[in-house]
C-alpha cells in the first residue's frame, strides 16, 4: 500500500508577536513546528503501513527550511519525503496550494506507485482553513472523507474502507472505495517515538526537492499569488474595547460578601437570568 501524507511546517503561532505600531508580524525567534494536526494523520498512516505493509511518502510545500520537518517525519518512520519548493509558490491561497499539492501527488504516483490513500491534517494552525484537503480530493477526483476519527476497517483486496467521521451532532459511519483522501481529526491517536534506527535513517536520508517544473506543473499562472483568487487587502490588529471591565471593589470584603456583590452585579446587568433561574428552580 502506498500512502501520501500532506504535512505543513508552520510558525508556532503561540509565539508570534505583532509590532505595536506597524501591525506587522515580528518573526524573530518564532520557532517553526510540524503543523500539530498533521501528526495525527501521520500516526494513522504509520499504523496502517505497519499493519498492511507498503510505504509512506510525506509531502510538503514550503520554504527550503521545511526540510527539517520532513526529516523529523521520517524519524517517526515515514519512508520518504518530498519538498515542493519554488518561489513561484509564494503567496498561495488554498486553491493554489491544493493545485500544487495535487499535481505533485500525481508525480509521486508516477514515481513510487499510485497512492491508495492520501492523508491531510484537519487544518493548519497558520492557514487554518481546513480547505486544502477537500481541494486536493476534488482535483485528484478522490473520494473525500473529512474529520475522520477512526478507520474502522480497510480491505485492500476489495479496495474498500470504512471510517467513522465526526459530523454535527453525531458520528457518520461511511464506507467508500480506495483511493480516497482522509483528513484526520485531532485526538484520534498520538504520535509514536521513532526507533534509534529510524532516526539514523532519517538523518541520512535525502529529502527529495522538487521545483514547480520537477513536480510536473506546466501552468505557473495556477501557482502562488497569481493562482490565488483571494486577495488579502488589509491586515490589522483587533480593536481594543473602549471601556475596561468594571471591577468590584473588594476592599474589606470576605469571600462570601464578594460573591454576593458579584451575584448582584450579574443580576443587575441581565435581570432576565433571574426569571430563567427561578423557573428552573421551580420546575424541580
Amino acid at each position: 500500500m502506498h500512502i501520501v501524507v500532506c504535512m505543513k511546517q508552520v510558525p508556532d503561532s503561540g509565539q508570534i508577536r505583532v509590532h505595536p505600531v506597524t501591525n506587522t508580524i515580528m518573526r524573530q525567534g518564532v520557532p517553526t513546528i510540524i503543523n500539530p494536526y498533521d501528526l495525527f494523520a501521520l500516526e494513522q498512516a504509520l499504523q496502517l503501513r505497519d499493519q498492511l505493509g507498503g510505504s509512506i511518502t510525506m509531502l510538503t510545500m514550503g520554504p527550503p527550511m521545511a526540510e527539517d520537518s520532513l526529516r523529523k517525519a521520517m524519524a517517526f518512520g515515514a519512508d520518504r519525503a518530498v519538498l515542493l519548493t519554488d518561489r513561484y509558490f509564494a503567496g498561495s491561497d488554498t486553491l493554489a496550494t491544493s493545485f500544487a499539492l495535487a499535481t505533485a501527488i500525481g508525480k509521486i504516483g508516477a514515481r513510487w506507485g499510485t497512492p491508495d490513500l492520501v492523508f491531510t491534517g484537519k487544518q493548519t494552525i497558520d492557514g487554518d482553513t481546513a480547505q486544502v484537503g477537500p481541494g486536493i480530493a476534488k482535483r485528484l477526483d478522490l473520494h473525500q472523507l473529512t474529520y475522520v476519527a477512526r478507520i474502522a476497517d480497510i480491505d485492500l483486496a476489495a479496495r474498500r474502507i470504512t471510517v467513522e467521521r465526526r459530523a454535527e451532532g453525531g458520528v457518520q459511519v461511511l464506507a467508500t472505495r480506495l483511493p480516497c483522501l482522509i483528513t484526520m481529526l485531532e485526538g484520534s491517536n498520538s504520535i509514536r517515538r521513532g526507533s534509534m534506527a529510524d532516526s539514523m535513517r532519517a538523518a541520512r536520508a535525502e529529502v527529495v526537492k522538487w521545483t514547480a517544473a520537477d513536480a510536473g506543473i506546466e501552468d505557473l499562472t495556477k501557482c502562488g499569488l497569481r493562482g490565488s483568487p483571494t486577495v488579502v487587502k488589509r491586515v490589522f490588529a483587533p480593536s481594543p474595547r473602549e471601556e475596561k471591565a468594571q471591577l468590584i471593589d473588594t476592599t474589606g470584603l470576605g469571600t462570601d460578601q464578594v460573591a454576593q456583590a458579584l451575584m448582584a452585579g450579574i443580576l443587575a446587568r441581565i435581570p432576565a437570568i433571574e426569571g430563567d433561574l427561578q423557573r428552573a428552580a421551580a420546575s424541580y
Partner: peptide
C-alpha cells in the same frame, strides 16, 4: 545507550 528503542550505539 539512548532512550530510543534499539538504542545502543
Amino acid at each position: 545507550r539512548t532512550d530510543r528503542a534499539g538504542g545502543f550505539i
